[in-house]
Amino acid sequence: MVNLTLADIIPFLLLAARWTLLLAAIAFVGGTVGAMLLLLWRYGAPRVGGLATTLFIQLFQGTPLLLQLFLVFFGLPMIGIEISPLAAAGIALTLYASAFLAEIWRGCVDAIPRGQWDASCSLGMNFLTQMRYVILPQSFKIAVPPTVGFLVQLLKSTALASIVGFNELTRTGQIVANATFEPFLVYGLVALIYFAMCYPLTVGSRALERRMRISR
């Protein structure tokens, strides 16, 4: 047993929380780009893209994230690609976030009335112009709450990266708890730090929603 005071433990955990944030940021940015590509493929080439993106989404929604993480972490080295725990977790979470965000945003795009597509088509807009100036700006408004909701989940899901040995908040918590024999205190602090990271997102989302409601 190691004697550590709260003043020792807290900075330790906060430093580890940076890695949690980094991983969440990678997954969110990667997932946003991935989901946007999936979305454009789906609507731009309904036949091939529709089928391929549905398959991709089903695959990642239908398997546990932990398993996806294992497949990347243990699978890539088998084909000769050595990979760090951070990279493995980043890749797995990006794919996972791409699938979920694509599905969330599909619903938001589908909620736009057919007449908006008709009108923009009839004005000679090509697909990308239509998406960029007519469909996505309208979808964005309804997409904010579910997207932030998913982002909160994603941030919490980064805890799974502890299992492949990535020293983020949860794994650091485990190490500290094992060293101090004070699991309740340490995991309690870990939970508080997760909460402190997620809560502002929810509040921010609500504020953004309110602002958009006023602006229109």
Binding site: P113, G115, Q116, D118, A119, S120, C121, S122, L123, G124, N126, V134, P137, Q138, K141, R216
Partner: peptide, 24 residues
């Protein structure tokens, strides 16, 4: 041919029953 379609749509305007203005 997408090119033909876009060409034709530029030259043909349309007015709809439900107006279909862009609300944003």
């Amino acid at each position: 041919k997408v090119k033909n379609i876009e060409h034709v749509r530029r030259e043909v305007g349309m007015v709809f029953q439900q107006f279909n203005l862009f609300p944003h």
